[in-house]
Write a protein that binds this DNA or RNA. Sequence first.
DNA 1: TAGATTGTTAATCGATTAACAATC
DNA 2: TAGATTGTTAATCGATTAACAATC
Lengths: 210, 210
Amino acid sequence: MKKTVSDAVIRRLPSYYRYLISLEEQGVVRISSHELAELMGLTASQIRQDINCFGGFGQQGYGYNVKELRTKIGEILGMTRCFDMVLVGAGHIGQAIAKYPYFRDLGLRVVAAFDTDASLVGHEMEGVPIRGISELEGYVTEHKIDIGIIAVPAAAAQETAERLARAGIRAMWNFAPIDLQVGESVSVVNVHLSDSLLVLLYHLSHSKNG
Amino acid sequence: MKKTVSDAVIRRLPSYYRYLISLEEQGVVRISSHELAELMGLTASQIRQDINCFGGFGQQGYGYNVKELRTKIGEILGMTRCFDMVLVGAGHIGQAIAKYPYFRDLGLRVVAAFDTDASLVGHEMEGVPIRGISELEGYVTEHKIDIGIIAVPAAAAQETAERLARAGIRAMWNFAPIDLQVGESVSVVNVHLSDSLLVLLYHLSHSKNG
DNA sequence: TAGATTGTTAATCGATTAACAATC
DNA sequence: TAGATTGTTAATCGATTAACAATC
């Protein structure tokens, strides 16, 4: 059991969780590191190392109990309670997030959206009310919000992050194509869509057929 | 100049490109590896190593010409010509992508969308016509499409990937929360939204205040 | 008990950082 | 020329892989 868990391991955890959920749904009870490695395209060694960052959840001669391991990884990821999120920006990206169906299974929900566009305020997106941006800090503080989703244009993203941070938000999911400057007590995970697409472009341009 | 470029370097290229575009817009003409490192939160050494995977674009005693370096990295990423993309799935995610404004600057455009929902077929999303899924292969072949965007539900994603591959697509941008099984001539870049959010959840749950 | 498979240590590999000669 | 900064080699660090004793 290591002291600090590397970022590489943390980024693989959701993937483990996904595969284990799928195995559980298929009724698979036990799985060895070799079988899971084959399935996920990793090595058995890596899987055992990764899991042992958090403790020995397996059993020699048997492997891992799928349900138990899934539960443990869920706990490690923080899925022991529900988290409420606010969405800042009710544009196209914001709408897609508000309607994203997979959050519910993870115990996550968007409880309110905020936008500067007065014509949107008062409307709902899939049951999520859109409020004026001026209400942001008050709402976040009052409702003890955990996570802020930044889906505003690039030019407004840094200011949004600062407002969220001042209101006490410690976790931000950023869709704006910039790197936010935040204090070290704030965690940011970026979804840089253009960056991701450019990586694909690189591979396409450098493939044998390309 | 290295023979093979590591994935870590490739994933940093879009970030370099973003910062250089921004510097160029601010009228910055030259920049040293130290200045760029400070800006991007990397080390100067790493920046010089990264850039030298592709050739010596700098000048001793001077640094890098911002415009020239931006152009070079754009070329390396494959931004020398425009690429046409098809979007499979015109749901909430699909709509957000069709309307995403940042693609145009990158020389990328969505030329057609496909969906199984007959009530959507014939409509447009931000000028992108929605066609029936049965037309997919024919359209892709006829229009020499480069990139397929998979924005269908998880259960339909693998089949979509296979259809795109059979139609000759060699680059796929996948938004479905599964890992696609494709031949080695096909490049896939995933945008696993739930995975990304779970990483944020992990950080939130393991922070000192959490 | 014998077989299987983990947990864990050691070896390897690759990426990042440091150092410095080359050179603008 | 002197100063600055790259390009590149060497050193370090960290992550992955291999090996095997522990043990179910």
